[in-house]
């Protein structure tokens, strides 16, 4: 009985270690690492070292995880508002199943720049979002036209422009219009 559990735990540990290295999102990697740590604490118990297991459980899966998470909090968040004025509500299931290609690429851009993309879906109009929320960029969709709004003051907007010029050509070929507005007048 015991050796079988041990072997299963060993395999699970390898899987979790691999996943924590492979996952693209840092937050997820931290959680996998915590699970790995808890698993290794269990293995220590099976091997007859409860003392080491206790230390591993407390430090590895709790304190280290909290320190990693608070480090990630300092990590800069990049807030993206997505507004589609044709819609009056968003269904949660739809959001998960059909990711928007434009938003997906913006997320890729952010992970390349070591930023964490926070995407907000909203039904408010562009002006309301601009006035009432803190944002880095706003993506507005109108039928087949995506307009991306950003401020000149934003540190990353120049690189974003370059990224959009280079990487959105296939979507443009499919008939989508994508443009980036940097700085605009109030009445727009």
């Amino acid at each position: 009985m015991m050796p079988v559990v041990e072997k299963i735990m060993y395999i699970a540990l390898i899987i979790f270690a691999f996943m924590s290295v492979q996952t693209p999102k840092l937050r997820r990697a931290v959680v996998y690492l915590a699970v790995f740590s808890a698993g290794s604490a269990f293995v220590y118990v099976l091997l007859g070292a409860p003392d080491a297991a206790l230390a591993e459980a407390v430090i590895g899966s709790t304190i280290a995880t909290i320190i990693f998470l608070s480090a990630l909090q300092k990590y800069k968040a990049f807030t993206v508002y997505y507004t589609n004025e044709m819609r009056h509500e968003y269904r949660q299931s739809n959001l998960f199943r059909r990711r928007n290609a434009v938003l997906e690429r913006i997320e890729n851009f952010c992970s390349g720049k070591d930023l964490e993309a926070h995407i907000m879906y909203t039904t408010e109009s562009l002006q309301e979002v601009m006035k009432n929320h803190g944002w880095d960029i706003i993506v507005r969709r109108k039928n087949n036209k995506f307009s991306i709004y950003g401020m000149e003051q934003n540190y990353h907007i120049e690189e974003m422009k370059k990224y959009i010029d280079e990487n959105f050509n296939d979507l443009r070929k499919l008939g989508y219009e994508i443009e980036l507005h940097i700085g605009w007048s109030e009445n727009e």
Binding site: P50, D51, A53, L54, A55, V58, I59, T62, I63, I66, S70
Partner: peptide, 28 residues
Amino acid sequence: YIILTGISQPGGGFQGGAVLVAIFMCRY
């Protein structure tokens, strides 16, 4: 409990102290 029973059981000062840090982390 972990600190005081560490003499005869698994546990001890280091592990118990690490548990006590949780208080300050909760405060944070």
